[in-house]
């Protein structure tokens, strides 16, 4: 094994690096390695809607079994689940559009 040349001074190097990076506009590809947003967002919103329906319906079903009111709470909570899915999807979408509006993205 050959002895690797020791780096001169890491602190000094990082100072120089920072100065060099500040000197010109940083390449966005460097600061953000790979952020595949669009496709992930599509998957995300779609499952969010379905899962909220399932959870809402499931809650209602369990409460029905407990209170002996089948099928009424199931129907009510299915509606709640649908609303919750829409809200979650809306929040995700508005968050994403807010990110898209900020410069440097």
């Amino acid at each position: 094994m050959t002895e690797e040349p020791q780096p001169p001074d890491l602190k000094e190097f990082s100072d120089r690096l920072r100065k060099a990076q500040g000197a010109d506009v940083p390449d966005p590809r460097l600061s953000r390695p790979f952020a595949p947003r669009g496709m992930g967002v599509a998957f995300r919103v779609a499952t969010e809607l379905v899962a909220a329906l399932v959870v809402g319906g499931g809650f209602g079903w369990l409460l029905d079994g407990w209170l002996n009111t089948r099928p009424w709470l199931f129907l009510v909570f299915l509606t709640f689940g649908f609303a919750s899915g829409i809200i979650t999807a809306f929040r995700a979408a508005s968050r994403i559009s807010a990110e898209a509006d900020t410069p440097g993205n």
Partner: peptide
């Protein structure tokens, strides 16, 4: 209730996706 359902949806949607 809608917010609570939304909270409990998280593990389901995370795993199903």
């Amino acid at each position: 209730p809608i917010e609570i359902i939304g909270y409990f949806t998280r593990p389901i949607s995370l795993s199903v996706r």
